[in-house]
């Protein structure tokens, strides 16, 4: 099952999403990237209805890029999150809504702090210190309640993420195989191997 996590720490945000693309009982692909880099300091993990996910993510990507081209500076995380939430909420009230769940993580270069938003297909949004989507969330959220530290260093943050992934691998029947992990901090976005 599709699973994604995100954790904030001191001056950074880590985002992880599984890399399988499945159709019924078949894994069609095992290295699909489900985290989009929307701007130099903004990440978005997406999951949900096949087809809707990529279409919505590309729609968001292009609008965020358009804003940057028109105004010569990117949207800050809170503003981007508001715009994206609004796009989902309006879609929900249309004839054919997007069924897409999101984790939005960014680093605000003006205030020097990471921001994380949990967004679901209904347009529900919450700013949180850590978040998860999918079946993995049932294991990870309690774990993060116990172990998350907002002042953790990047290494400590990655250790906590590892705890999440290990727990999911241990207890979830249909656990994902591989994850893609991305970090955003003052230097921008980078991908790491866990």
């Amino acid at each position: 099952m599709e699973t994604s996590f995100a954790i904030t720490g001191k001056g950074y945000l880590i985002m992880a999403a599984d890399t399988t693309a499945a159709r019924s009982i078949v894994k069609m692909k095992i290295d699909e990237d489900k985290i989009k880099t929307l701007s130099p300091h903004l990440l978005m993990a997406y999951s949900g209805e096949p087809g809707d996910t990529v279409q919505f993510a590309e729609y968001v990507e292009r609008n965020i890029r358009l804003y940057q081209i028109r105004n010569l500076y990117p949207l800050r995380p809170a503003a981007a999150a508001s715009w994206i939430r609004r796009a989902l909420a309006e879609s929900l009230r249309s004839r054919k809504p997007y069924s897409v769940n999101l984790l939005l993580g960014g680093y605000d270069t003006a205030t020097h702090d990471p921001h994380l938003y949990w967004v679901d297909y209904l347009g529900t949004m919450a700013e949180v210190p850590f978040a998860a989507h999918g079946y993995g969330s049932y294991f990870a959220l309690s774990l993060l309640d116990r172990y998350h530290n907002p002042e953790a260093t990047l290494e400590e943050g990655l250790d906590t993420l590892r705890r999440c992934l290990d727990e999911v691998a241990k207890r979830l029947v249909v656990s994902p195989g591989k994850y893609k992990v991305k970090i955003v901090d003052k230097d921008g976005v980078r991908e790491i191997e866990l």
Partner: peptide, 9 residues
């Protein structure tokens, strides 16, 4: 791979 739910891989 392209299918009718819009997936393209």
């Amino acid at each position: 791979y392209v299918d009718s739910d819009g997936t393209r891989l």
